[in-house]
Design a binder for these strands. Structure first.
Lengths: 133, 133
DNA sequence: CGTCCGTATTACGTAAACGTCAAGCACTTG
DNA sequence: CAAGTGCTTGACGTTTACGTAATACGGACG
């Protein structure tokens, strides 16, 4: 348990991002590193959030969308009404993701189909692929 | 079979994009509408490509990445060596997508877990969620 | 024939997500 | 203590993916 806190450089090495990116995310209120004097120290919570940020980006979410998603994970001691609302948003998000999953499955099988053809074309000769819908 | 060709406006209505977007994609060599005089006419092939473009975007691919992916679907009558190379790229892409699917599954189950907590919190009262890894 | 309407081209504008200096503070290291 | 190393805060630059006029062209219509 080396310290639970990481410097900006350790973060960059660990997650393959630049210092600029981490400061940018802090400015956008996606991360909240603590300050020791001048320097930033990133907590376990920051690391968890960063993972989610990078994951979100890989799925085409904007940083603003990601920020809202992150807030879902911060369901702290809020008011009941606000909480219910948050819950609804989260359910919508989940539905989003499951739609994306279906789409991704489709994309994968499309590409697989394409690869089967590619295989045939490599082992045999060329053909006319324009017939495909 | 109304004509198999669509005007820019018909395309916009059908796929919910702007004319600017379609012209932009053409400029970036993602689409290749034919020209009747001045006007563009989009073929079935353009529509298939546009669908893939929009799908790619939903998964966070840049237009440049999408253009390369689209080329995989255009495995026409190329040279054998080039074809083999293309095939390798396609397989890498497929592996990419399957990794993404795993990640998406993880993201979904994470969010579902979060929702279970949210449920408890709504039906009961507030609690401390900071203990979560 | 004048005037819309839809499309075209050209060009400048913009939001998001950083990159890239410039200049300064805090160690520590020789 | 001078020099380097690492971090800091601005501030301006850049790329991507379009938006938004301004201007012009070609057919349809009253």
């Amino acid at each position: 348990m080396s310290e639970d806190l990481m410097t900006i450089r350790e973060m960059c090495d660990a997650y393959d991002v630049t210092p600029r990116t981490l400061r940018f995310y802090e400015a956008k209120e996606l991360l909240f590193p603590i300050r020791e004097g001048q320097k930033r120290l990133f907590t376990k919570r920051d690391r968890a959030r960063l993972k989610l940020i990078l994951r979100g980006k890989r799925f085409g979410f904007s940083l603003e969308e990601i920020r809202q998603l992150l807030d879902l994970y911060h369901i702290g001691d809020q008011q009941h009404t606000q909480l219910t609302r948050t819950y609804e948003i989260a359910k919508d998000r989940l539905a989003d993701m499951e739609r994306r999953r279906e789409e991704l499955d489709e994309a994968i099988s499309d590409l697989k189909e394409q690869l089967k053809w590619g295989e045939k074309m490599i082992t045999s000769s060329s053909a006319d692929l324009e017939a495909a819908e």
